[in-house]
Design a protein around this nucleic acid. Structure first.
Length: 531
RNA sequence: GCCGCUAUCGUCUAUCGGUUAGGACAUCAGGUUCUCAUCCUGGUAGGCGGGGUUCGACUCCCCGUAGCGGCACCA
């Protein structure tokens, strides 16, 4: 394929262009992930540019804080920026509100070239115009009234201080042909395109002007953005033509939808902050793996059957060509599956490190987004739990590693851990009936059975290490004597020792906690059952 | 209303004119197992409708339908 760009050695430069109020969630992660991937793959640059040209949005809150909260969140999942307001770069400033004079200059250039014109129409007239067009079932469009004002006259009116905007003078005949990475050739009739406002009355640019100017000035080679921009793509192509600039490669990616498939992903369905997701215990590996699979699949020749990919593999395999053109729905089941798989891929040592890192540097860390949005109730209680257990975990790392090894294959997200590991770290359970299987046996039967099995277990545990054979022989043997199903007896011991009906294997659990602790649990259980 | 994009199991997807339409999640049935989970085996389930083009269409074209997006001095 012959590209306009002939220099193959040119550095690939991509940009993420959020507005400063932008929340970071799985949908936006997925939106900016391809930039990061392609930059890493090619040795190019991943750039962050803040698009804060909407004065209304900037009227609220501390946008500096918002920007840095965003950066912090992206970097937490592993999406790092090589240039941006936080690290600088050769093409700054990277915040549009600091580039106002630049946009003004290029808007004036368009005026002077005859590719743009001053428009003096009031917003009231525009609103009325729209209403009338809607009533006539026409598409709302500017009627180009001011386009016929003579340039000299317009200049005079501007000089006299009359309120105005600058509009793009889009051709009214013929068609515009655009090339798009995913959609191929796009042709539009010029008559369908509006004379877009480029510079607002307050002197600030609209997205259309600002993004084209900045993408050019910042030497962006590939623009990856949401497919909601597709309809205005021809305007941008025309602007590049007006300026005589080389057009970057454009790719318009679909977004992630709610599970019902009818709206953009909303908070209710998993679009809550990515920091919250990480606190919940989704790993960055899992987040990135799931996110990239929304609307993309690797080339069939190199795809993994289980769809599990490391971050390095995603970087290696990702390409825009295999990007889907339709929106994908958010699927919590699959997300959970992928996260669980990544948890199980760690060696026990790696897993222990990650859990500690999660506790200290994710759960308990004070993120900037916390200042803006505050903490949810579950985050507060998770922090309390982690604060309680973390010192105990770290006090005996060998023990912690052993406990974790039992949970590694059982956990979908890390936030399950404090509770599921609790029985190794607390001294007493508050038993309740629901922690026991009383379908087949009464409380008193359970108490009696536990008492006997306890005596027999004491014998083998107190003489030293216990083999699986010995353990099984005691429990099964006694169940047989009682004419119980072995499972009922195992379950009783399980409830006594772990405080719940479902747990990791019992012998391993007892070995870790030690018989002295297990016996206390069993004694207390007998007392409770006998009440 | 107008303009545009899209259309394969419930969901995410593979296929780039010739396949028993493949995989993953979910689901169901087995196996492993002291419970749960992991792991393994297997099953159910799909080309929106209608016309073309072609020896042959999920694949190309047209129409319809549906979904999504856009139609701001928001991005």
């Amino acid at each position: 394929m012959s590209s306009v760009r002939s220099d193959m050695n040119k550095e690939i430069r991509l940009r993420a262009a959020p507005s400063p109020t932008g929340k970071v969630h799985i949908g936006t992660v997925r939106a900016y992930l391809p930039n990061f991937l392609l930059a890493r793959k090619s040795g190019g640059k991943n750039i962050l540019r803040v698009e804060d040209t909407d004065s209304k949005r900037n009227a609220f809150g501390d946008s500096q804080l918002g920007v840095h909260a965003m950066i912090e969140a992206y970097e937490a999942v592993g999406i790092v920026f090589d240039e941006g307001p936080h690290v600088g770069g050769d093409y700054g400033p990277y915040v549009q509100s600091e580039r106002l004079d630049i946009y003004k200059k290029y808007a004036d250039e368009l005026i002077n070239n005859g590719h743009a014109y001053y428009c003096f129409c009031s917003s009231e007239r525009l609103a009325e115009l729209r209403e009338n067009q809607k009533a006539l079932k026409q598409r709302p469009m500017y009627d180009r009234l001011c386009r016929s004002i003579k340039p000299e006259e317009a200049k005079k009116r501007v000089a006299s201080g009359e309120a105005h905007v600058i509009r793009m003078k889009f051709p009214t005949e013929g068609e515009t042909v655009c090339h798009e990475v995913l959609f191929g050739e796009i042709r539009v009739k010029n008559q369908d395109i509006d004379d877009q406002v480029l510079l607002k009355q307050n002197g600030w640019p609209t997205y259309h002007l600002a993004s084209v100017v900045d993408d050019h000035l910042m030497r962006i080679t590939t623009v990856i953005r949401g497919d909601d921009w597709l309809p205005s793509y021809p305007k941008h192509v025309k602007l590049y033509e007006f300026f005589g600039w080389e057009i970057p490669e454009f790719a318009h990616l679909p977004m992630i939808l709610n599970p019902d498939g009818h709206k953009k992903l909303s908070k209710r369905y998993g679009a809550n902050s990515i920091i919250a997701k990480m606190r919940e215990g989704y790993l960055k590996e899992g987040i990135l793996n799931y996110a990239i699979l929304c609307g993309w699949a690797p080339d069939a020749k190199v795809a993994h059957q289980d769809e599990i990919y490391s971050i390095d593999e995603i970087i290696e395999l990702f390409d825009l060509a295999h990007m889907n053109k339709t929106a994908a729905r958010y699927d919590q089941n699959k997300f959970d599956y992928i996260n669980g798989k990544h948890i199980r891929r760690f060696t026990p040592e790696q897993f222990a490190d990650r859990v500690l890192d999660w506790a200290e540097n994710i759960v308990l860390k004070h993120f900037k987004v916390d200042v803006i949005s505050g903490l949810e109730d579950w985050e507060i209680s998770l922090q309390a739990e982690v604060k309680k257990y973390l010192p105990l975990w770290k006090a005996d790392i060998t023990k912690f590693n052993k406990c974790l090894a039992l949970e590694q294959e059982r956990v979908v997200k890390l936030s399950e851990l404090p509770a599921s590991l609790a029985y190794f770290y607390i001294d007493e359970f508050n038993y309740s009936d629901s922690d026991w299987n009383m379908k087949n046996r009464s409380k008193s039967e359970l108490a009696a059975a536990l008492k006997e099995v306890f005596d027999r277990l004491s014998v083998i545990f107190e003489k030293g290490s216990v083999t699986h054979e010995e353990w099984e022989k005691v429990v099964r043997g006694y169940a047989e004597e009682l004419d119980w199903k072995a499972g009922d007896l195992f379950l009783a011991v399980r409830s006594a020792v772990t405080g719940r009906l479902q747990s990791p294997p019992l012998l391993e659990s007892i070995e870790i906690m030690g018989w002295h602790k297990a016996r206390i649990f069993i004694e207390k259980a007998i007392t409770w059952l006998s009440k």
